[in-house]
Design a protein around this nucleic acid. Sequence first.
RNA 1: GCCUUUGUAGCUCAGGGGUAGAGCACUUCCUUGGUAAGGAAGAGGUCCCGGGUUCAAUUCCCGGCAAAGGCUCCA
Length: 652
Amino acid sequence: MKIDVSLPDGSVRSYDKGATAMDVAKSISEGLARNVLSAKVNGELRDANRPLPGNCTLALLTWNDPEGKATMWHSSAHLMAEAIEALYPGTKFGIGPPIENGFYYDIDLGERTIGEGDFAAIEAKMKELASKKLTFDRKEISKADAIKYFTEKGDEYKLELLDGLNDGEITFYSQGNFTDLCRGPHIPDTGSIKAAKVMSVAGAYWRGDEKRKQLTRLYGITFPKQKELEEYLVLLEEAKKRDHRKLGKELDLFTFSERVGAGLPLWLPKGASLRERLINFMKNAQEEAGYVQVATPHIGSKALYETSGHWEKYGKDSFQPISTPQEGELFMLKPMNCPHHCEIFASRPRSYKDLPLRLAEFGTVYRYEQSGELHGLARVRGFTQDDAHLFCRPDQVKEEFMKVIDLVLLVLRALNFESFEAQVSLRDEEDRSKYIGSDENWEKAEQAIIDAAAASGLKTVVEYGEAAFYGPKLDFMVKDALGRKWQLGTIQVDYNLPERFELEYVGSDNAKHRPVMIHRAPFGSLERFIAVIIEHTAGRFPLWLTPEQAAILPVSDKYVDACLRLAEKLKALGVRATVDERNEKVGRKIRDAELAKTPFMLVIGEKEAADGTVAVREHGQGDLGTMTTDAFAAMLEERIAVQLRPVPIGME
RNA sequence: GCCUUUGUAGCUCAGGGGUAGAGCACUUCCUUGGUAAGGAAGAGGUCCCGGGUUCAAUUCCCGGCAAAGGCUCCA
């Protein structure tokens, strides 16, 4: 008996019945066989050493495949569990899944506690066990036997997990002295794990339920090469250095004050100027795209949010209504701009000829985020959205949506985000109670997004349960310079709010029609966006955006006057530059300007003051030589033009 | 919101039941120095806030607030 195996390259190979994915790998090359971690058989993840079920499609997964990594880390969780069981007998185990960077295992150590000081011992034990090349053995087991095993072991967590499983679908995996309830798959043996590190320890509730016992969650990561672990640790160090909270302080961009309140950022002059430049950039782009600016207050009556549905949905978790001397009068801090914009649309009769109407506002909104969620600028309670609402006819939705996609891509290009993906965020497939509006409207909106994204040539991934409560979204996830993912811009199609606000326009048929709304914010929020660009650029902002483009450094205070005149001249030429008038040596001024990440330093001494030139030094590059002031300004202008040049849109 | 940890000068941090410490930053003076830290002197603190224990609390205990990490949540 032979079976046919179709490989991803399209080839079909024939094997004896009972062959495993590993056998297939060996038949291709020894090297591949060494690197195989798991396999995808007919689209299903399986152990590489399990016999293939018959004719099938097969993809061999290695460390280069995300699913291969996940298999390795899942197995590593088991390995860590074995190490923990060896070091701390009697430990009970919860769950131990792979995560984006590594894995964790939730454990119950009883009276014992574990701290960073214990990590080294666990790592050593893991490495010792890994080097034994222990195989992961899969075993199908009856529910009764499984219960018996964990009852004898006294592990109530596993028993609870078993409770939710059906007889006949239960499997155990064993390696060395450790046996775990597990669906698998696992790597062939622990020999692929060459480097292991326990990263951190934290508390986590059993099954994420705060009413239940808190277990100890141990995070770890493993690699097939020691060198990769070292590179990973370097990356973590780099991420720490780029932390926007740290850089925000060092670069004088923003601050927080206990007295003002948690999650309420205070923009310092440099940060505010940077923010202003982002706003102007977006205003210009929007003006070209036919938007009009509007402005609305920071509060609105409670009734407004009852109409929009926000009160019902988020009222109890929001900043509570503001009362006035008048009995029964209540106002809310606005959590979104859309209700205000709906009322602008409704302020007079609208014709189909007026559409699309694109109302834009840098609107500051306030949301009561849980205290534990606040995080620098990335998660705050008061923030400014580059918000706009497009009111259009149903037949305009697709084109308008595609234009918004172009705008988002323009923004990503201008800030050098090379890598990104678009996520179609749809309703939760099961629980629909979280959303307002009819199924019919939702389906129209979902289809509109999928169509527009496809027509724009965007590659998308679909996520269920990520929609806004009034409509589905297209969210842009960018990868920063360190490969970390951030959610930035969002575009949403909404058939529901126009209904709730009874918005209408008169069509060419002289009848009333309901417009469709598109909500969109390419930056998302300025706060979050700035947090991301700080970390993406490590504080070395693009020249057009950076608060200070050049530091003018007099060699001694004899040349301060010349420097001040130079600053005036540069200002007239559109260059942002300030003079370092301190009584310090030029070496010191250069050092401080370098640390402040100022892109250019202009050293002015006797020679430059006399002939009106500047000695230019570039951040991180060193001395560029002497040039005229005009030539320097022209160089800046040219560099900025290159940074902002529209690049033909090409997807990843 | 929950768990753990932390909170000392503008910043980074040491210390410790009995009158508060360093480096950097800041002020003044000296120095006028050409591409990553010139020198000296000085000023600067409600030791997060409130309560308790104690002869005595910045230190120990309790409660709050804030921050970090994690969990849950996110219009």
